[in-house]
Design a protein around this nucleic acid. Structure first.
Lengths: 140, 140
DNA sequence: CTTGACCTTCCAATGATTGGAACCTCCATC
DNA sequence: GATGGAGGTTCCAATCATTGGAAGGTCAAG
């Protein structure tokens, strides 16, 4: 049995987050000492590590809630798990694509910016939308 | 002079967001009609379009605040603008790299998951940390 | 003069995390 | 036994950007 601080160290999830996960029902309420201190056994620390790993892969908490339920369900079908994972991959890839597009545009603009003491700046011109050569600059 | 709804349509920023930007001081308080309706002139709509474009490039509002100030400052140096842009690009690239790493791991795990009615699932095994072949699976 | 579209303000929720205040408890040391 | 410090407890608030809704005021057309 470990206190919340020990469970935090053992799982990689901060004590603050452990309490938070409990408050939103991601984790069941654990045993308490007479003084009200939370006590975690090995299986609870295991669940915390599960959450920690899932978070490090970017899964949102609501998905982690489902993954935890599947993990505990011996009669689960791996198809459901795989569906959650591939949907998450799709989300990530959408965001990656968006950000790559931003980077591409920004790098192009920065490339054409002198970056000196003068005020002329293609970056601001683009943001202001008053760039004369919009066709040239917008569709990179 | 346009009402907030017209300014929203003209700029791409929702009326809700225009009020919000005003409330946090990103935009100055604008003129009002006798009834208290906000009125936007062309230069204010221009600033809204500026913000809209900057948001679409992923700039955080605090950076947009600085960009707006620079835009209005005729004695700005383009170096400062460029610095803000390249710092933002660095932020984006960091996040992209992180997400790509997640995608790589998830795709690897999903690839090894049958995705059928059976409960065996390498994805859950990885999350649970109880995969026998961790070396094989973890450093992809 | 009513209807509907628009405007106003204020409060709250999202998602994940962090910070702090105010307080309690355990253990060791003087 | 008193004291101090580390660690536990709860609750409230902030971050970041956006959205939703309630409750109410205003304006135009029918």
């Amino acid at each position: 049995m470990r206190t919340i601080g020990e469970a935090a160290k053992a799982s990689g999830v901060s004590a603050k987050m452990i309490r938070h996960y409990e408050s939103i029902g991601l984790l069941p309420k654990v045993q308490r000492t007479g003084a009200g201190y939370r006590l975690y056994d090995e299986s609870e620390v295991h669940a915390l590590r599960f959450i920690h790993r899932a978070r490090s892969l970017g899964f949102p908490l609501e998905t982690i809630r489902q993954l935890l339920a599947l993990w505990r369900d011996r009669r689960r079908s791996s198809a459901v798990v795989k569906k959650l994972a591939t949907a998450h991959v799709a989300d990530l890839e959408t965001k990656i694509t968006e950000m790559q597009s931003m980077v591409k545009t920004l790098k192009h603009l920065a490339h054409h910016c002198h970056g000196d003491e003068r005020p002329d700046c293609p970056i601001l011109e683009d943001l202001a939308g008053d760039n004369a050569n919009a066709e040239t600059c917008r569709h990179l």
